[in-house]
Amino acid sequence: MTTPAVGADPAVLDVRNLSKVYGEGDTAVHALREVDLLVRRGEYVAVIGQSGSGKSTLLNILGCLDAPTSGRYLLDGLDVANLDERQQSVLRNRQIGFVFQSFNLIPRTTAFANVELPMVYAGISRRHRRERTLAALDLVGLAGRADHRPNELSGGQQQRVAVARALVTGPALLLADEPTGNLDSQSTADVLSLFDGLHAAGRTIVLITHDSEVAERADRTVVVTDGRLRDQVGLRS
C-alpha cells in the first residue's frame, strides 16, 4: 500500500491488510481478503461492487459497526481495535457521518429534530445545537423546511435532511451507503450535486454504490470483487 508522502494530506481512513471471515472450516466465508485502502483528507472516493462482492462488509467495518478478523483500521489516526465498545460508539458519533439508502429519519419528528439528534447524544448544549442544526439545514438548502416531518418532504429532500444530520457534528469522514438508491433521476442529480459541493468545500467522502454513473462523480473509484480491491481508477480529469 502506498504511504503518504511528506507534506501530503493526512489520512482520514487507513486500512491495512484487512480481512473478514464469517464461520470456520469448510463453511467459512471470506468476505474481505487482505484489503488495503488509504483515503486522505478531502478526498472523494467511490467504492463500487455488485451484491455479494464484500462492499457491505467493508462499509460496516469502516463505520465501526463490525470488526475485522485480521488487519488494522485507523480512523483519523486512531486504531479502532484499541478502543472498547463505548469508545467506538463515541468515535462513530463524532467522527463518522452516515448517509443511508433508506434515509433512516425518525418519521414523527421534524427535519430539525432529526438533524439535531446526534448532538443530543453528544451532550452539546441546546443553544449550540440550534445554531448548528439550522446551519446544517441551510447548507443542504432546507432551512425553510425545518418544521416539516419526513412524510411532508420528497425523497430527495429527505436524503438532504439525512446529509445535514450526517454533517452536523463536523465528522472527519462522510460515509454514504447507496445514497441515491431510492431516488428518482432528478433527486439523484440533486443529491450528487450536493456531494460535489461538499467535496469542493473539503469534506472527506467515501460513497458505497453499485452504480458506475454515481461512482463517476468521485475523484477515485475502488472496485470490490470477491472480497478484494481489484482496481483503483481516477475518473475525473
Rank of each mutant, 00 (worst) to 15 (best):
P118C: 13
D177A: 10
T69E: 01
G155I: 13
L139Y: 02
G197I: 04
T180C: 00
G23K: 02
A5Y: 13
T57R: 03
G234L: 05
S53Q: 02
R94A: 05
P179C: 04
V191G: 00
S70L: 11
A218C: 01
N60H: 15
R94C: 01
L32R: 04
Q158V: 11
L91M: 13
I208P: 01
N104K: 00
G123V: 05
N17F: 00
V140W: 10
I208T: 01
E43P: 11
L235I: 00
T225A: 04
V222H: 09
A111S: 12
V161S: 09
S70P: 01
P171D: 04
D79E: 10
P150D: 13
Q232V: 13
R160I: 02
T57G: 03
L117W: 15
R92Q: 04
V90H: 06
H199R: 10
H128P: 00
E85I: 02
A218P: 00
L37S: 03
V115Y: 05
Y44P: 08
H148R: 15
R94D: 10
R145L: 14
S89M: 08
G52S: 03
A176F: 02
V21F: 09
E178Y: 06
N114R: 06
L139M: 12
V222Q: 11
L37F: 03
Q158D: 12
Q101T: 03
L235Y: 00
V168L: 05
V99M: 08
S102F: 12
G23S: 03
L59D: 07
S212C: 09
R145A: 15
D26I: 15
G52K: 01
L75C: 08
S154N: 12
N104Q: 07
A136P: 06
S212L: 14
R40P: 13
L192T: 04
H199E: 06
G42F: 08
Y121V: 12
T188P: 05
L38P: 08
N60P: 09
S212K: 14
S102L: 05
V80A: 10
D84C: 09
D219Q: 13
L18M: 14
N104E: 09
L83C: 11
Q88R: 15
T27V: 00
A218N: 01
G49H: 07
G227H: 02
A143I: 11
Q157A: 09
R217P: 02
R217Q: 02
D184A: 10
D211I: 00
G170N: 05
A136Q: 06
N82C: 14
D76S: 14
T109G: 12
I61K: 07
V21D: 11
R220T: 13
L13E: 04
R130S: 12
A176G: 02
V29C: 11
G77P: 10
H210F: 04
R92D: 03
R130D: 12
T57E: 01
Y121S: 07
R92I: 07
A81F: 02
R108W: 15
V168C: 08
E213D: 15
R203W: 12
R149I: 07
G156H: 13
D84P: 10
R220A: 07
S154C: 10
A11T: 13
D9W: 02
